[in-house]
Write a protein that binds this DNA or RNA. Structure first.
Lengths: 218, 218
DNA sequence: TTCTGTGAAAACCTTCACAGCT
DNA sequence: AGCTGTGAAGGTTTTCACAGAA
């Protein structure tokens, strides 16, 4: 969301962290990763905020929600921060994910290595046109749609990426939720209805472009 | 979505329209399109807000920024609304767009028909590995990177979709801006620096997933 | 001195409640 | 009655300004 985002729903635990803070945490994480690669081990709010594209005070406020991690006069220890954020985002181990809809966009997403790199494992992709025995795509099996619910259930999958046609979106979402999915990254260009305990993040590529075009002066 | 960390500026018409309103306008547009397909020609704030996933009052507030379009006791005329939004988003004719980076994600985006459908025309794709005479992908020529700036300049392209590796992102962005691009939809997982008059919207797929994972209870 | 942590203020956005048109 | 348009209230997020630790 921006978010982002079109729409999102909420439920969740006690600590009441602002949604936007949570969102920025993911961005900080990505920046920190790069700092680690470059053997940087201390960073000030000013420089981290710089690369993340936010104001230093905002970064400090965000981090302060989780405790005191910095050293005054010095900055933050990169490793400490990474661990703190990893904890906060609840990702100490691989999150299993399924992808539904292996059309153009869906199969591109399968081949996109970014997810795996960041600690998500796409266990399987489902498609209405898939047949038993279809070849894997980048190591991920593509399975007939009918088997989705059973698979999600059996593997305790909590997250799904949705890239099906608009006409199928709501149905698939209902099934996913029935099977236990709690968070959905939705690339189908439609707003889907979900109960309060399920979180949806819409990524509608055309909407993003359209929105941007407002800021182009002709 | 919050808006991309990076930046933006205003200079358009006098009435300062909230960024979030502009964003929602694109969503309303998409919903209205579907109403047209179904031969609906009048819609109340309540039902349109329903399908767009927002509250009726918010929809009315959003529209009110642009004038009085509704009829009390009745609702909004779908066609009037579509035109109003199209005007507001400055999209009375096709917006030319270029795509940079024709790797996995980039070429999937090329094949993705959603952009064309919504009034954007991808004129060309550029890739560092492309050669003169490479075959078109879905009707779009894939051209060597060196020719990008000349092309953008010559064709008055104002918008770009970026799907290059992190290491190339900032360079390409600088070139695009030099050549006159004012808005960038950035799929490269990094925050790029741009001057105030350029708008960037970041779509970092891994960040979106990571963010969602916070809302999954284990 | 440098840089974090934070209460208070400002800016921004959403929702309410109802006035007013059809 | 039905539904839009809107000032005012309410809520959330960002920024400021500075206190306090290293």
């Amino acid at each position: 969301m921006e978010y982002s985002p079109s729409c999102m729903k909420e439920s969740l635990p006690a600590p009441v962290i602002p949604k936007k803070t949570v969102y920025r945490l993911s961005i900080y994480q990505r920046c920190l990763q790069r700092l680690i690669e470059n053997d940087v081990n201390t960073v000030s709010s000013e420089s981290l905020a710089g690369v993340a594209g936010v104001k230093p005070t905002q970064l400090r406020k965000d981090l302060a929600h989780f405790g005191h991690f910095g050293t005054r006069g010095l900055g933050y220890n990169v490793n400490t921060l990474v661990e703190m954020i990893r904890d906060a985002l609840g990702r100490n181990r691989l999150q299993p994910v399924v992808l539904v809809g292996a059309g153009n966009l869906g199969s591109a997403l399968l081949r996109y290595s970014g997810f795996q790199k960041e600690g998500f494992e796409i266990l399987a992709a489902f498609d209405i046109a898939a047949r038993r025995g279809d070849p894997k795509v980048d190591g991920v099996p593509v399975i007939p749609q009918e088997e989705m619910m059973g698979f999600v259930n059996k593997n305790d999958v909590r997250m799904a990426i949705l890239a099906v046609p608009v006409s199928a979106a709501q149905d698939v979402v209902d099934q996913l939720i029935d099977a236990g999915v709690q968070a959905i990254l939705n690339f189908s260009p439609t707003v889907v209805d979900v109960p309060d305990h399920v979180m949806v993040k819409n990524v509608d590529l055309a909407v993003e472009l359209e929105n941007l075009s407002y800021f182009v002066r002709n």
